[in-house]
Nucleic acid binder design. Sequence first.
DNA 1: TTTTTACGCTGACAAAAATCATCTTTATTA
DNA 2: TAATAAAGATGATTTTTGTCAGCGTAAAAA
Lengths: 231, 231
Amino acid sequence: MESRCENCIIRQLNALKALNRNDLKRISDTKVSKTIKKGDFIFEEGEKLNGVFCVRDGVSKLSKMSDNGKDQIVKIATKGEVLGQRSVITDESTNLSAIALNDMEVCFIPKAELTESVNTNPDFTKELLLQMASELKIADNIIVNMAQKNVRQRIAELLLYLENTFSIDNEGYIGMIFTREDIAGIVGTAKEACIRALSKLKKDTFIITEGKRIKLENKQKLQAIVDGLID
Amino acid sequence: MESRCENCIIRQLNALKALNRNDLKRISDTKVSKTIKKGDFIFEEGEKLNGVFCVRDGVSKLSKMSDNGKDQIVKIATKGEVLGQRSVITDESTNLSAIALNDMEVCFIPKAELTESVNTNPDFTKELLLQMASELKIADNIIVNMAQKNVRQRIAELLLYLENTFSIDNEGYIGMIFTREDIAGIVGTAKEACIRALSKLKKDTFIITEGKRIKLENKQKLQAIVDGLID
DNA sequence: TTTTTACGCTGACAAAAATCATCTTTATTA
DNA sequence: TAATAAAGATGATTTTTGTCAGCGTAAAAA
């Protein structure tokens, strides 16, 4: 399924919205649509990227695997997000891998086109800057949370974030399914600790689980856990 | 001690190096030099900043205090770094406090002047973008390290970083003194765990300590600890 | 200088989380 | 559909880290 960037609504969700007609035409002429299957790499840690990937559909994780097999997820990227942006800007190899969590549709935009827009379109550069600054703030918050909150708190916070990001299906469950291992990878703990924390939240009737699916039953309480007001 | 930005060599260390003569004149005319005493706040979490602080001399920590009194340090900022940049760019309140670790000399640059340069000088914006991207990469690495490395590894890594950043005095000790509590705050652990880890490294003869001062005796081994090659 | 306060250090103990093992259930694919 | 693999769940145990208490030393303030 090919289509023109000019008509792509996804664009509105990221820095590409600042592109003008010329930029869009140029980029659209060179971009390549790709389908990526669940579990496949979009790119791998250490790779030198020669472009970025604009997510049209699907969800991916940006993560780093440790020697002992633990996969720390730094970010979940969904529709509208641009992957590899940072590495392309700084012209370094990626320090993270991007893996598809379900089947994905992405557009590959060559580095040269991006650089051209950065060099000739100040609005685009400003937009990138804004987005980078906002991502940095999020990253700083994660650092603080990892140090100051325990696993239960971090999981409660993640659940609220996930419902917010993926909204709910018609039965009230979070609209995207993650394995317990991925959830553990996001909050930075072991799979077992993650499972136990979820089981505890279920026993406390703050959530309902059915297989991998999770429904938030009491968001006030979950937030109170995050804030350390209750245990 | 007042002086003109035009002649300030500190500028070369940050995005301000991309400013042109006009920018510099304008900013220099409005900037205010400030002296900040050890322990004092440059700004506090939640504040809406109406400008940034360019560090001319001294060292500060960017951190967030938790309810239980634990202070997580997200970044150590030294000569040449610009504090508050991100909050000013995104026009939000800071989520971190900046506290002087020794007596400091900083220049306050009003937000309006910065915004003006961002809007009229694409080179400056590009430079800011590059820096922000590089900071984001660092932050991502910290997240991964917090999740995948234990206290001993994180402390070993910090020591190598500190020697690299502050170099050594004539006796070979790291050229900046931190309290054990601040070191704990950087690696995200409790003061006692930090002290114990340092004592252990000392007993292992990988470092020498004398009061608060720390000398690295075996950087190869320290790096091996970081990499998980030895315990 | 003296006094006070902050900091470094250590032991004892508690809590949190990691690891290992095992079993069940759910997906995948042959 | 049956076989196989992947993921969930839970118990037992170890390791790591946090917390509390107390003591000595060094730095800062009176």
